[in-house]
């Protein structure tokens, strides 16, 4: 019994290996084999493209393993030394400010996760409405949803800054005053919405909504309407149809949309940089941005590279792992059947 199972496992693993090296995307057994000379020709071509892709990435990785903080004076794509000094320094003391790596990571995660989740929650009902109903003003309202794409983020950031900045909490003697609803003269500032991750998060949702609505609507369009009609005949209310039928079917696309949004928020630095002033609120991307700036020659290059790898790595690994779902999700979002 045990032996047959082992044999089976072995066969499975061998198949996995075969599949890995020779993936047949059409899920079709057989088909014509590639002649060796063509295989070699195509391999050369794909390798050249792979090198083109890897070239800047190898440059950054090599730099991150270097112990020298100076700007590299020659091109190096294979690390001469594997020194973890830069990683150590970045993890130990990422900025000149008293803020730990864990705090930066937590802020980044809090911001990306929060914005992604809330935008998704708001977007899915809107996407459902746009996908399934034909009502007056539909086209106009949908164009309105896309306004943040039309107006550059920097165009909306000044009013948002002023709006968030007007919401402040003061310690006024023994009482607490909340501006703009109460006034307090000479009180001690406890909380400024503009200067908090919460405020930045709220501001970032505006930019996150259009993509989420667009991507979800495209997918909802592909769910056959017959399912809902059948449920309606069985007496399900429109809300039940949405929560019991449409929402469960949309879960894979919800995940893809959330993750694609997450990547964007994870890399966002302009809006947080404009709003936040307290180092303990900084995110990883802001730190990375802070390392470039106008003093290009003063950058500790190896630390910048190490930070870049740290910021990009989690996203890259997840993306590659979920690539299949992301591809089909994006295609469903964009293509109308």
């Amino acid at each position: 019994m045990k032996n047959t199972k082992e044999l089976h496992d072995y066969k499975k693993s061998k198949n996995a290996l075969v599949r890995f090296f020779n993936a047949n995307t059409s899920n079709e057994v057989g088909g014509r084999d590639l002649p060796l000379w063509r295989q070699i020709l195509l391999q050369v071509l794909t390798l050249v493209i792979a090198l083109e892709v890897m070239f800047p990435i190898l440059y950054i990785i090599t730099l991150s393993f270097s112990s020298s903080t100076a700007r590299p004076s020659s091109l190096q794509l294979i690390p001469k030394e594997i020194s973890l000094v830069a990683y150590g320094q970045v993890l130990d003391r990422p900025t000149a400010n008293p803020v730990s790596f864990i705090e930066l990571l937590r802020n980044s995660f809090f911001l990306s996760f929060g914005v992604g989740a809330i935008a998704l929650l708001i977007a899915v009902t809107a996407a459902y409405s746009f996908s399934r109903f034909n009502f007056k003003m539909r086209q106009v309202l949908m164009v309105m949803i896309f306004i943040p794409l039309l107006m550059p983020a920097v165009g909306l950031s000044t009013p948002l800054y002023l709006l968030m900045n007007s919401f402040r909490v003061f310690q006024c003697g023994g009482a607490i005053a909340i501006e703009p609803f109460m006034t307090c003269v000479g009180g001690q500032l406890l909380f400024n919405l503009r200067d908090s991750l919460l405020g930045v998060g709220i501001a970032m949702i505006a930019g996150a909504l259009p993509f989420a609505v667009w991507n979800l609507k495209g997918y909802l369009d592909t769910i056959p309407k017959e399912l809902e009609e059948a449920a309606a005949i069985d007496g399900a209310s429109p809300n039940q149809i949405f929560f019991k039928i449409v929402l469960p079917l949309a879960v894979p696309q919800l995940a893809v949309t959330f993750f694609l949004g997450f990547i964007g928020h994870w890399q966002e630095f302009a809006m947080p940089w404009l709003f936040l002033t307290k180092p303990q609120d900084y995110t990883l991307s802001m730190t990375l941005y802070n390392m470039t700036g106008q003093y290009a020659n003063a950058i500790p290059w190896n630390r910048f590279a190490a930070m870049a790898v740290i910021v990009a790595l989690p996203v890259a690994i997840t993306y590659i792992a979920l690539q299949k779902y992301i591809t089909s999700g994006l295609t469903a979002g964009g293509v109308k059947g």
Partner: peptide, 18 residues
């Protein structure tokens, strides 16, 4: 009704700034 959440949020963070 399904559009209310999106537009409530957008009124504050998109249309007002606009």
């Amino acid at each position: 009704l399904y559009l209310i959440p999106a537009f409530a949020v957008m009124t504050i963070i998109t249309f007002y700034p606009l």
